[in-house]
Design a binder for these strands. Sequence first.
RNA 1: GUCCCCGUAGCUCAGUUGGAUAGAGCGGCGGUUUCCUAAACCGCAGGUCACAGGUUCGAAUCCUGUCGGGGACGCCA
Length: 659
Amino acid sequence: MDILRAPIAQELARWPSFRQAGLTAAEIQAQLVRPPKRDMGDVALGCFVFAKAAGVKPNEVAAKLAAGDVPPDNGAPRLIEGATAAGPYVNFKLNRAACMALVLGAIERSCPGENIEDAPQWNFGAGEEGKGKTLVLDFSSPNIAKPLAVHHLRSTMIGYAIKKMRESQGWRVVGINHLGDWGTGFGKLIAGLKKYFPEVGQRALAGDARPLGDMTVQVLIETYQRFNQELKQHEDLEDAGKREFALLERHIEALMADRAHEAGPEGKANFLIWEHARNISLAEFERVYAHLGISFHLWPVVDLHRKRVLTEEPERFFRENALYIGESYYVTAEDLCRRIIADALELKVAEESEGAMVIYTHGKDKPPIILVKNDGATAYHTRDMAAALYRHRHFNSETLVYVVGGEQRLHFQQLFKGLELLGHAWAGQCAHVDFGLLLFKQPDGKWAKASTRAGRVVMLEDLLDEAVEAVRGIIREKNQDLARDAQQAERVAHAVGVGAVVFNDLKSGRRNDIKFDWDEILNFTGETGPYMLMQFVRMGSVTEKFHEAARLKDWGAHAWKQGDCAQLKRDDEWELVLLLANFPEALRRASADYEPSIVAKALIEVAAQTSSWWTNTKDTRIVGEDAELSKARVRLVNAVRKVLGRGLLLLGMTLVERM
RNA sequence: GUCCCCGUAGCUCAGUUGGAUAGAGCGGCGGUUUCCUAAACCGCAGGUCACAGGUUCGAAUCCUGUCGGGGACGCCA
């Protein structure tokens, strides 16, 4: 409806009955809805607010508006053919050919090119709302020395889709992968590594940049767990962990101040171990992110090159990249942590409590923000505040957005409030984009957080592999043509398998909990990623079919571009065009609400209607004997393909031409 | 215990921000393929919108309460 609503409202504003009622196009547009049943009309106007303003009954207003004459001809094709009052509504019948031409024309203008390679340039539904504004988007954000588990998919893909959607509305989006790479846990890890693998400590002391050799993330986790187990019996290990972390922290601070030589060899050794562990983790992350089609650009802890990156081509850089910025970065960056503590003291918003320095953001009976722990170290609130200040300042952004699970609602409420208390009014525009938990079935049959029956989390990579493998099987079974081309079959299996997982994650509202169920995730029937891709692929293959027919019958190579919408007389074709017209509004809402599922739902409607149309035209075919009809239908096919392709890319899926 | 989120078909979810007779998918049952991809399409069955009040022309939607499920709650991040 979206591309049609504005012109419809403008036309209605010219009707004598509407002018008499003093209604503007904007007021009219706001009341346009779709009637619940098709036979009522194509578009309806609810008269409730007009009636309230005029102090009369909605039914009377509707009757009066519907009774008027049509407006004088102004040369433009008339979109509205007739009006009937139905209770408090006026139902309008639209001029299908004129409306279809409007919608298809808008899609064609905004989506140049027909190849998959052109798809990233398609921008149907683009908006200007964010023009000149920057949004910093914190998403994905795993902890290093831990694997990427299935639950990381949520933040990663919701965040990525939000990035794309906001960009479509004109925003510059700086995506930041806020790595959990700091905290006393890393001191324990270092202590554990030194204890169980003495050669690690020796190599680090000798200045080896790869003191961990070929260790995997799995070994790091096991080391950490083993150390924690032992810690229960030997409490002195706790101190060992804290000591290693303190050495690490001191070294990084010295490094930032260019006084690394003063920090001593032990600190440097810890830094080398930590940095190598981080690199091992990042290499694993990269592999999984590559499956998802996402890449991040690392901002090193001590970075000398970032200015070059930012000054050369910032617009393009941020559109094509997101950044890794570890928590560790903000510990030392510009002394922000210390400045926050100083500000809090100066403004008297902080106070001493139980040996820690805290801010009570929500009254004394709620837990406070802890700025400095009783052992003198900063806490994560402090680092998050420092990160917020840094982002606000360096990326010139009023809007910081965090794609983080709903369990952390309180944390973000406190964070934003804390920033406000420190005088940063822009914190009011920050948003916590929360999402539901990932639940696993427990032995007692109930759904619960965290772990599977076996007590272990499901690795994201395993999930993706499993989905790809399932698709390989389906290809072998159903498309032997494709299976013969091993390379392409593999590409397709990957795109479809990963797409199935991604779409499944994005299709329902982000705040719903996700019940992790292999059977459902690997069931590719119905409203699924493969179904969406299927419709996209079909639209491509029928276009090819047209080109073939056009050669034989001499219709002209791209004759469908001149297709006449008046040929499209079927109700299902009209319905399909209305759904296409709805896409820009869905995208705008999805972007504004940080809600990818709105786009996913809009695409499902388009795909379902497309599939129905496809089947119901089997007798005449989309590309049939009738040249004019075939041209017009393929023109519609092309529009469907572009809207589907555009939407799927926004959701972070990969397009394919066969499957 | 306090605060927050949620409750719509057997299951998973929509419901255009208060409007017309509450819609999809999965699962179940029954059909459809000489034809541009059946990973599809068509039909049937399935509802006291948790419950009880209230607000008004009108409530799945807003308010209050009850019940049920989940989450968070000072030095882990």
